[in-house]
Design a protein around this nucleic acid. Structure first.
Length: 623
RNA sequence: CGGGGUGUAGCGCAGCUUGGUAGCGCGCCACGUUCGGGACGUGGAGGCCCCGGGUUCGAAUCCCGGCACCCCGACCA
């Protein structure tokens, strides 16, 4: 006699493994099996996209019940998400350990002092979460741990014999981001694996850096995360050589260039424009100042000089690239003071503030206001020229120019008088700036600094960053060791980070399709997702239970959709949304002795004989 | 921190212009039917309409002030 209600039927079906204890209303809450059961999993998939999620990883991780937003810039990991997160973390840890790095673990809550000494209590600015203890002492939630690692090594080591040393941690970091966004891609609390290397000399640092580079390459390969290694600038961390690992994905926040011909790739902030050859001054026309009425823009200026016979270029038309645009910005320094900076660049280029800030950091670039002009009477708005700029000229404002401005290049530029411009103003002969700055926007098609072929521009998610920090922190915090000669040496350091929680989102980004996620096997919450279809009275349920137990015994991780009364369409769609790489359907085919195996990624379905199914799946999953 | 958008049931949304019983779809609960691609019927539960002031006999709706979220900039793993 068939059980009367759905619930009784569910109970009647039960798991193949022994049901422990008294009858319950759930299928198997007390079973020791590690099979994940959809009937009891703390999971709710969403039929529709959440309205606040824009990027694919955010949308699908929420829809698939992997994460829930808990706070501005903070997410809760649900059971499936936490499994995925831990898989990623485990891979990172295993790769670090394999490289011979040793894991330690610091507090995230730290006192002010170390950061005060390194200068970052102020340099890090608003991005640090600061708090006070009951006595009013300052603390912070660590945004990164250079200081603590440095102090720890100082605490324990004092000989060159102890070096090199590589230590790392996997830690929750806190940054008070002005704008968290895109789900896990930019949060205020996130997990980072940060490593530090300690060496006695520069050659050692080079070696340590290279070791980390290799460890990162194998880590990202194992995470199945496509990446591009780009030259970078080191920002607030300080230091010299630095490379970023970017997953080339359009929703990423980093813009980078890569050469269409050679292996050059760089963050746009780090691109160094190759200067043209200098030109001898002999025979170059003398500079001349001309009235140029009604030329408020570069465009109108170029039109005017091209249309006036007396100003025309002898061989060709003038273009915006012949003009030298000068603009003034203010630098806001971490201590709250301001200074002015003038930038000169070809008129066909806009200023890329990110590039500027990468070079003036930790100062921030802010707009030069009309009130600021009042302080510099020699600056004529709209007609600022090299004549007024520079530390030795009227304004005294530091003047840096684009690398394309080399000796012998001639420019049309402001004459520091309203309505007047200078033509043929020649660098090195008529003016001398205080230095060079990479401020100009990089355009697709610009020449590669290495080989001269065209650059292309792409976007990426920063998943890793490696730096040669040098001695900045060791010096500030007094980390020294004695060398072979008994002489005190300041240790040189490297710092290396992987965004672990961000990597989960980056991986998700790279594996989405129109149906949902599709995890790399090692990261997936399970190896196989078994879907049971058919009426509860059919043998598909018990057969699937048996299969799940066999697969588990064979070492596979199983997610079993044992929900009763859920229509097959929902189960199929959920399976595709969740993205376990192998989907197994125990259903119709069973009558003919087959079970269907579907590859999530390719969609290819194979009917496999019941007798062969376990061996087949073990093969598929071990492949 | 600038610009734009949105806050109404767990989720997705309508209602607001023109003030008067808070609605729809999905999900959830109960019973029955159904069982290979987001099934059906019947009956239910669930709301500080973001918060605080104001106008009004009466406010989800109008006014003022906040806050939150999302997107684009600015800033960063």
């Amino acid at each position: 006699m068939a059980p009367a209600t759905l619930r009784e039927r569910a109970r009647a079906r039960g798991p193949a493994t022994a049901c422990v204890g008294a009858a319950t209303t759930r299928n198997q809450p007390l079973s020791r099996s590690s099979v994940l059961r959809m009937s009891t999993l703390f999971l709710r998939t969403l039929r529709e996209d959440p309205s606040d999620a824009e990027v694919a990883s955010h949308r699908l991780l929420v829809r698939g019940g992997y994460i829930r937003r808990a706070a501005p810039g903070g997410y809760t990991w649900l059971p499936l998400g936490w499994i995925v997160y831990r898989n990623v973390e485990r891979i990172v840890r295993e790769e670090m350990d394999r490289a011979g790095f040793q894991e330690v673990h610091f507090p995230a809550l730290l006192p002010r002092e170390p950061y005060e000494i390194s200068g970052r209590w102020t340099d890090y600015g608003e991005n640090v979460f600061r708090l006070k203890d009951r006595r009013g002492n300052d603390f912070l939630l660590a945004p990164t741990h250079e200081e603590m690692f440095t102090l720890l090594v100082k605490d324990l080591y004092s000989s060159y014999k102890d070096l090199p040393l590589h230590i790392y941690q996997i830690q929750t970091k806190y940054r008070d981001e002005a704008r968290p966004r895109a789900g896990l891609l930019r949060t205020r609390e996130f997990v980072m694996k940060d490593s530090y290397s300690f060496d006695i000399d520069d050659a050692g640092l080079e070696t340590s850096y290279e070791q980390h580079r290799q460890a990162y390459i194998s880590t990202f390969n194992r995470l199945k995360l496509p990446f591009v290694m780009v030259s970078a600038v080191s920002g607030a961390m300080g230091g010299s050589a630095s490379e970023e690992f970017l997953a080339p994905i359009d929703v990423g926040e980093d813009t980078f260039v890569r050469c269409s011909n050679c292996d050059y790739a760089a963050n746009t902030e780090a691109v160094q424009v190759r200067p043209p050859d200098t030109v001898a001054f002999d025979g170059l026309p003398a500079a001349r100042t001309e009235a140029t009425p009604d030329t408020p823009t570069i465009e109108t200026l170029v039109d005017l000089v091209n249309s006036r016979a007396d100003l025309r270029h002898p061989d060709r038309d003038w273009t915006a690239a012949d003009t030298l645009k000068n603009l003034v910005v203010k630098l806001k320094h971490p201590d709250g003071t301001f200074s002015a900076l003038a930038i000169g660049l070809p008129g066909d280029r806009e200023v890329d503030l990110k590039r500027v800030e990468a070079q003036v950091g930790p100062a921030e670039v802010v707009a030069f206001e009309p009130v600021d002009f009042a302080q510099y009477p020699s600056l004529v708005k709209g007609y600022i020229g090299p004549g007024a700029l520079g530390e030795n000229n009227a304004s005294g404002i530091r003047y840096l120019v684009d690398p394309r401005v080399v000796d012998g290049t001639a420019w049309i530029t402001g004459a520091d008088q309203t309505g007047r411009h200078v033509l043929h103003l020649t660098m090195g002969r008529d003016f001398t700036p205080d230095g060079v700055i990479e401020a100009a926007e990089i355009h697709g098609g610009d020449p590669c600094p290495k080989c001269g072929h065209a650059l292309e521009i792409a976007r990426g998610i920063e998943i890793g960053h490696i730096f040669q920090l040098g001695r900045r922190y060791a010096k500030a915090l007094g980390l020294t060791v004695l060398d072979q000669n008994g002489k005190t040496q300041t240790v040189t350091m490297g710092s290396y980070g992987i965004g672990v929680s961000r990597a989960v989102a980056a991986i998700a980004e790279t594996v989405v399709d129109d149906k949902g996620l599709c995890w790399p096997r090692e990261i997936s919450p399970a190896d196989v997702h078994i879907v049971i279809t058919g009426k509860p009275s059919e043998p598909t349920g018990p057969k699937a239970e048996e299969l799940a137990a066999q697969l588990e015994a064979a070492g596979l991780r199983v997610l079993l959709d044992d929900r009763v009364g859920t229509s097959p369409g929902i189960k199929f769609n959920d399976a595709e949304l969740l993205g376990v790489p192998t989907i197994v359907v125990v259903g119709k085919g069973l009558a003919n002795g087959t079970i269907e195996v579907k590859d999530r990624k390719t969609g290819v379905r194979t009917d496999v004989a019941v007798d062969d199914i376990v061996a087949h799946l073990v093969d598929v999953c071990r492949a």
